[in-house]
């Protein structure tokens, strides 16, 4: 296994680079959003809520798109779709990606509504959703690196 790990076709490198880069931006922006949504909830701060909203809209969502498109590109390059029994790690990856996208969109909409109404009341729910999202991302990182069959 350790020696096999060193071998990877060159054609996988660019989609893998974009996949990881997108995931880095997505997770980093979600952490940034959480760092502002928790104070927004505790202090009823609309300014902090606005930063959380912008982190999700301009960081996490674009990062998600890059990560997901590159994931599909890699999936096709590796020919995983042609395998009769799809491996568990790709199922976990797609599952966490789809559920994560849902949580991300809901949190973005909630924060957008709060910013528009100058009311930080939704920060608590958005912070909880982003917390759940970060747990999902750890599961996804585990699945992508250990590749359970």
């Amino acid at each position: 296994m350790s020696s096999l790990a060193a071998i990877r076709p060159d054609s996988w490198d660019l989609p893998l680079f974009l996949h990881v880069l997108g995931a880095f931006v997505m997770v980093g922006a979600a952490v940034l959003a959480a760092a502002f949504l928790v104070p927004a909830w505790r202090n009823a701060s609309v300014d902090a809520l606005r930063v959380g909203y912008r982190s999700l809209l301009y960081g996490a969502l674009p990062g998600f798109v890059v990560m997901r498109v590159a994931a599909q590109w890699l999936y096709d390059e590796e020919g995983i779709g042609d395998i009769p029994d799809e491996p568990a790690w790709t199922a976990i990856g797609f599952g966490t990606s789809d559920l994560g996208a849902l949580l991300l969109v809901i949190a973005t909409v909630i924060t957008a509504m709060g910013v528009r109404r100058s009311n930080a009341g939704g920060a608590r729910i958005a912070a909880a959703l982003i917390g759940a999202l970060l747990v999902l991302y750890v599961v996804a990182i585990w699945a992508m690196t250990t590749k359970p069959v």
Binding site: A23, G28, A29, V31, L32, A35, I141, W142, T145, T146
Partner: peptide, 20 residues
């Protein structure tokens, strides 16, 4: 597998700091 998971998880923490 465990080493790669911990290495990549640490990389996510490092890059999260940079994004912040």
């Amino acid at each position: 597998d465990a080493l790669l998971f911990l290495h990549v998880l640490a990389a996510f923490a490092l890059i999260a700091a940079m994004v912040m």
